[in-house]
Every structure is written in C-alpha cells, then in structure tokens.
Design a protein around this nucleic acid. Sequence first.
DNA 1: TTGATAATGGAAACCATTTTCAATAAGAAG
DNA 2: CTTCTTATTGAAAATGGTTTCCATTATCAA
Lengths: 156, 156
Amino acid sequence: MPGRRGMRSSGWGGKFRGCGYRMTVPRQSIMDVLSVTNKHLSAEDIYMEVHKIYSNVGLTTVYRTLELLTQMGLVVKFDFGDGRARYELIEGSKSGHHHHLVCTGCKRSIEYTDFINEETEFLERAEKELSKKYKFDIKNHIIQFYGLCDKCREKK
Amino acid sequence: MPGRRGMRSSGWGGKFRGCGYRMTVPRQSIMDVLSVTNKHLSAEDIYMEVHKIYSNVGLTTVYRTLELLTQMGLVVKFDFGDGRARYELIEGSKSGHHHHLVCTGCKRSIEYTDFINEETEFLERAEKELSKKYKFDIKNHIIQFYGLCDKCREKK
DNA sequence: TTGATAATGGAAACCATTTTCAATAAGAAG
DNA sequence: CTTCTTATTGAAAATGGTTTCCATTATCAA
Ligand SMILES: [Mn+2]
Ligand SMILES: [Mn+2]
Ligand SMILES: [Zn+2]
Ligand SMILES: [Zn+2]
C-alpha cells in the first residue's frame, strides 16, 4: 500500500533527482515541514521544526535548501518587511493559491483568496505574453498590497 | 515665476508637514534624487547620489527617510533578492506605474507596463473590496513575476 | 561494494540595517 | 528677528539574518 503515512514520499525525491540533485535526509525533512504547515515560516522557524526530529540538521543547510527550492520554482520567498525572509511551498501547500495584505506597521500579513479566479485568468494571459516579449521563463509570481491593518491604523 | 528650477519645490515640504513632520535639507535632497531617477536605487545608491551635493548627509538619515516615505505611502520598497532593499517613488516618478519581472538567477529586474490598463481596473476593484473586508488601509501594491531571464536560462 | 563528488554542519565572516546619543536645526510663538 | 521646544541628524557601534569556508559525510551510479 504505497502512499500511506500522509503522502510523505509524494515524489520529492524524483523532483530533486530530476533536476540533477540528490535527495537527502535534511532535504526530505525540510520538504515535510513545508508540506504540512500553513504558516509563513522563516529559515529559523523551519530549522527549529526540523530540529525536533533530526537534531543534527544545520541551519546552513536549511538556507541552502530553501535557496535551491526557490531556484527550482517549488517555493516562493517572501519579504514582509520584518527583516527575515519567509517561505511558502507552492505545489501541494496547505493553503491554496493566495496572495497577501502586508501591514507596514506591524509587519504582519493577511492571506486572501478573493478574486483568485479572475486573477488567474488575467495572470495566465500576462504570463504568456510577458515571457514571450521579454524572453523570460516565468516560474511564479507574487501580489502584495501594502498598508495599515485594523489595529495599526487606530494606534496612529 | 514660481515653480522654476525644475519643479524642485513641487510641494514635498507640504507633504511632510501635512503628516506632522519637518522638511529638512536631507529630506529634500533625497526627494530630489528619487524624483529624477528612473532606476531602482538602494539606500546606499541614494546616499552616494545625495553625497555629491550635500556631503554631510549621513547614510543613517537616508535609511530613516526611506522608512518614513514608505510609511507615508510615497515610496515603495522592493526586494529583488540581491540582499539590499530598493526604493521607487510612486507619485511623480519618472517611469509611470509599472511592475517587475525578477530574475532569480542574476537578481536583475525588468520593468513592464503591459496590461497596466486591465490590471488597474482589476486592482482597483480588488483594493476596494479587500480594504473593506479586511479593514485594511491599502496604500499601494506590487506585482512581481519570478523566473529566469534570457541570459540566465542559457547559462544553465 | 566502491568511488567520485554532491551535500552537510559548525564556526567564522559578512554586511545591510538599526540603535545610541550628544549635537543641531526646523518652525511655532512672541 | 529672537527664543525655545523638540524633531532630526550624523558618526560610531551594535545587531542579526544570511553567506562563506572547509574538513567530514553521505548519496547513488557503476
Ligand atoms: Mn501565504
Ligand atoms: Mn521599477
Ligand atoms: Zn499592522
Ligand atoms: Zn538573470
């Protein structure tokens, strides 16, 4: 009965090898953490999470793997303005496709999925034309609205 | 004949004072640099540019002013992945409203203005509904497509 | 099982950004 | 114009997320 234990081995290994990389314990465990969360984890967040199970995985490796995943287009790296990068798995992520409202006051982000349908239609067309016109191989995208959240506005 | 000398005093002072801040020489000179460029300047870029004319303005002040401008919603802060933030004036910027294709290889960015009309329509509607639904005071937004540019793709 | 080499972890280095604090200057009041 | 309050500033030092180094280890094709 393949595929039990929560789809843990859902083919990440193949994905890595397909790109000429090796599948390792640290990489697998990082993918596990990313697949399960629905938060915006920083490198250190991921490191601590992985550390619970494999206490010998280093923070350096977490950074390296995240960079690799970003290059592979499997992960998006976000900057919400709080001084550390945050990462989200695209394929197979808990939250579906979504975007963010980012508060420039408290640096928190709110996910929204409104307009995703209209947006998808629009983005698909844009992606196609832009990649042709600028000879650009588009892997993914972000949309972020900046402003003040409820709480930060009244604090003003 | 008011307003000569290239619209230098195009009311930035009023903008600052209107928000309860003072207009100072460093702030004015930073606005001057931002108004004239059509590049994506980092804090240090701006510092060096300002330094040519006011050699006593400090890098710290540049950072502080950029933070202020971002909070005021006059400037957008970008992260193109090269380890330093980049800033663009919104109102009165040389390039009009536009977005970016960001290469995850060489970290360079390409501006595009295609689809801006359709996009504006879409974004206006989104902004209105999102700010109501999430009680969020939206100041501005970014859209970025990530991928590999022409050169970085063939290097692979 | 073996060998070539990709990948790793820990420590040190890096460096963009922030903090500190005494000195300065904007601008309201008179 | 002069005075006074205090927002603003510059230089230096501190901060801390991320990267670099390098000797050791583990992956996986043969
Ligand atoms: Mn998210
Ligand atoms: Mn731009
Ligand atoms: Zn907030
Ligand atoms: Zn490139």
